[in-house]
Design a protein around this nucleic acid. Structure first.
Length: 420
DNA sequence: TCTGGGGTCCTAGGACCC
DNA sequence: TCTGGGGTCCTAGGACCC
């Protein structure tokens, strides 16, 4: 058996290019919420040394000089393309695991086809390109970790590998690992890299040679597992059923800084309401809620406060959660401070039917029907058709800026492109 | 002036129990 | 001077990922 991981090349940029041919062949970046930083770059933009997370205001010059094209992020479009991408993978393998918005694992071999793993991988790439229009790369290996490394190698030397790297062969692994920096290995971040350096571990080969006990000593059991996986020993069980969501968060930077209690309360109410929508969509209720407010971390002495509360009984009712969030804002607000961000976290999510009830709480028997009606209206007529009054009305200065967003080409009737 | 958002897993340490 | 030995549960915070 083997693992495969497919990732979409420069996904957000590739998605924008799919519907706007003028973006081909020129440097393109897609921006974070509030149009703040570059979070996706075309190859041309990478060649101009635009790094992941570079703030736009610091590269105005380069943007003008090289005509770098910018787009606000369009998650409606990306989510829909991701769904199509996974549908194609599903045609090839019954066992797929969605890992992120632009990557999915799947298991090989795919029996009926009779093709080898590498040939199957090429077929999957060709089908995704033809049916969805997105370029991809695939890594293969006996463990998830090895397939991720293979995928990174395919990415690093696109021309050499033609989009597919297979790391089943131990000799090939030995050769490639000797020149693969340890910091590039999936699961090794800055901190672990720094802790491994004194031990003389600088390459993937040296990491793979580390005795498991040493690995656990330097890091945790996670690093020990990583070392085993690098040697081809599987440590992570395959999960057919996706794990249920455990926590969720809705946190946003403000379009304009907020100094006013009422505005802060409204901004928080919008995030809280959105968080409850997310969990209701999966039929979950939350056991714990946290709300926080913050000032800019780039300024001296920014305000930063949070409050948490246990929800008993667990709930997804926006009336309860938005109400609590409002009271928390009142408790946290300090007059004269400048706020740039706030958010709501819902934690310890459980299926709504299985939630522990509270002996002393009085539940509103009409709530399920009310919330179902509310979600139904918003699904049919668009988000925020029906909201709580405490969320305020209309577009506000504190809402996220998205000045350069492309249309929702594939998910809104009004935005569907017209062919002439 | 302007710097994203959303997840998971693990450990240490405190509180509490017998 | 001497000062037990385990447990569990919870939370905050660190580290990693995309």
């Amino acid at each position: 058996m083997s693992w495969a991981i497919v990732d979409i090349s420069n996904f957000y940029v590739s998605a924008e290019r799919l519907f706007d041919p003028s973006l081909h062949g020129v440097p393109v970046i897609v921006l974070s919420n509030n149009d703040g930083c570059a979070i996706a770059r075309s190859e041309e933009a990478k060649a101009l040394h635009v790094r992941m997370g570079d703030p736009v205001f610091k590269m105005r010059d380069r943007i003008r000089r090289h005509g770098i094209q910018m787009r606000s992020s369009n998650y409606e479009l990306y989510a829909d393309l991701n769904r199509r991408f996974n549908a194609v993978i599903g045609e090839h393998s019954g066992t797929t695991e969605i890992y992120s918005i632009d990557e999915s694992f799947f298991r090989l071999p795919v029996l009926p086809s009779g093709l080898g793993d590498v040939a199957t991988a090429h077929q999957v790439r060709a089908d995704i390109l033809r049916q969805v229009g997105l370029p991809t790369r695939i890594g293969l290996g006996p463990t998830r970790t090895l397939s991720k490394v293979a995928n990174a190698l395919a990415k690093a030397s696109e021309k050499v590998w033609n989009g597919v790297v297979d790391l089943h062969d131990e000799d090939l692994r030995r050769r490639l690992f000797q020149v693969w920096p340890v910091g590039e290995v999936w699961g090794i971040g800055k901190a672990l890299e720094a802790r491994l350096r004194p031990l003389g571990v600088r390459t993937a080969a040296e990491l793979a040679a580390l005795p498991p006990a040493t690995a656990r000593d330097v890091g945790t059991v996670v690093l020990e597992r990583l070392v085993r996986e690098l040697n081809g020993i599987e440590c992570d069980d395959f999960q057919v059923e996706p794990e249920a969501l455990k926590n969720t968060a809705v946190t946003r930077q403000f379009g304009e800084p907020v100094r006013d209690l009422e505005e802060l309360r409204q901004a928080m109410a919008r995030r809280a309401a959105r968080a409850t929508e997310k969990i209701r969509a999966q039929d979950l209720v939350a056991t714990r809620m946290i709300a926080f407010v913050q000032g800019s971390r780039f300024h001296r002495d920014p305000p930063s406060q949070s409050r948490s509360v246990r929800l008993s009984p667990p709930t997804s009712d926006p009336r309860a959660i938005v109400g609590l969030a409002g009271r928390m804002v009142e408790a946290m607000f300090e007059p004269g401070k400048v706020y740039t961000k706030c958010g709501v976290l819902l934690e310890e999510l459980v299926p709504s039917g299985k939630a522990q009830t509270d002996l002393f709480a009085v539940e509103d028997p009409r709530a399920p029907a009310l919330l179902a009606a509310m979600d139904g209206l918003n699904a049919r007529f668009g988000r925020d058709t029906l909201t709580l009054a405490s969320q305020g009305f209309g577009q506000q200065g504190f809402d996220t800026k998205r000045a350069m967003k492309s249309p929702s080409w594939t998910t809104r009737l009004s935005d569907i492109p017209v062919a002439r």
